[in-house]
Design a protein around this nucleic acid. Structure first.
Lengths: 214, 214
DNA sequence: CTCACATGTTACTTACGGTAACAGAGTCTG
DNA sequence: CAGACTCTGTTACCGTAAGTAACATGTGAG
């Protein structure tokens, strides 16, 4: 039948696609986000045009690659976010999950956060936003959803939840990036510090009086 | 005299440098961060090697360009941060200053936040961190300093201040990026929402009981 | 057998970062 | 005044990487 054959072919194509993505993964992990299409093709044991037939262009390959990791991370985060525990504990677990992930595989998350020139040739002139890292956006939306369905924020709750979702994700990302670079403290300390920040300790803390020129 | 002449030359070189940077600025504003060295040279009315003599490589030019804008923005932020007002008001003013800046010139901040491939050829294999956007880091450190010298956070205050500095800056950045892309609300509303988040409203809010499956 | 099609290759074009080598103008020194 | 130095500028080139065109080969269907 036509159908079965098409399915066979599609199955084969899908398998091939996965193989290619795994090869790309290895190369990106080894060479960083600047990995060339040639290198990826070589790693997969084939040549460039095949990659282009499967993924269109470099951006397509990178998008597919990013989706895999993003999905995996989001699933882990969802689990931490949905666990049955107090809010503070859930927040800390989520932060810790994220940080553990970027700690375990820094190159992957460097790639996800900085897709670099993926689309350099075209796309000139558009505003900030679209180019921006898809992982951050997706995490922000995801978190916003959880906040909105769990926390009572009054009438404008939905909008506020989105603001917070993106804000918190950005906080986590920037702090994680900095932490990964300098390792100024343990992961647990970082988690605690960020959770304290979200818990309003900035507002609660007193002024420093002994400060210079004050 | 040797000195006066050297000074003359230096003065001239500096002026030239400024002219080149202004040309680069125009091009980057027009073409986005992917602007080519050729395009920049053409805009400045000269050719590539001159750019390379002045800035070493593309990364150097981009760094110089970024420094200009970063310095300008940081100065504005410092003013908001140092204003004589209550903490909450200072925080809101600082957030608003940042958001107003990225709203006024989105391309500039897109460039600052995503220096892209600046150093693609070499630097393979290093961990996350160094590549990361200098503006975010500088803002984070700056804010950490202000927090540390103004807010009493107890014994581990310095470290906590740095965590918070980077965290808050990341929050501001991610939320700003998202807001700029979707414009889901007014600037004032965003500022208020973020300040509320920092003021512990997440911890204070109650659970939503009427939610689905709960 | 032959047509259609998927899979693969080689070889090319184009564009960009970066550099070498050369050319002219002004200036300082013998 | 002659030559050396330096600053500014050029053209022409190299290496690398994205992306494409054209060609080769194997395989199942009619």
């Amino acid at each position: 039948m036509d159908t079965t054959q098409r399915t066979d072919q599609e199955r084969s194509a899908d398998r091939r696609r996965r193989e290619l993505l795994e090869a790309a993964d290895r190369v990106v992990l080894r060479d960083g986000p600047g990995a060339s299409m040639n290198a990826i093709a070589a790693e997969a044991g084939i040549t460039k045009p095949i990659l282009y037939r499967h993924f269109g262009d470099k951006g397509g390959l990178y998008a597919a690659l990013a989706k895999r990791h993003t999905d995996a991370l989001l699933e882990a985060l969802r689990a931490a976010l949905d666990a049955p525990a107090e809010r503070r504990e859930r927040v800390e677990n989520t932060l810790d999950t994220y940080l553990a992930a970027i700690e375990a595989r820094p190159q992957v998350y460097r790639f996800l956060m900085h897709p670099s020139e993926a689309g350099t040739p075209n796309d000139q002139g558009f505003d900030v936003g679209l180019h921006s890292v898809p992982l951050l956006r997706r995490m922000g939306e995801e978190l916003a959803e959880v906040i909105e369905e769990r926390v009572d924020l009054g009438p404008a709750g939905q909008q506020l939840a989105r603001v917070w979702g993106h804000g918190i994700v950005g906080m986590m990302h920037a702090a994680g990036d900095w932490w990964l670079g300098e390792r100024p403290c343990s992961r647990a300390e970082l988690v605690r510090g960020l959770a304290d920040l979200l818990w309003g300790r900035l507002a609660a803390a007193g002024d420093k009086v002994g400060g210079p020129g004050f």
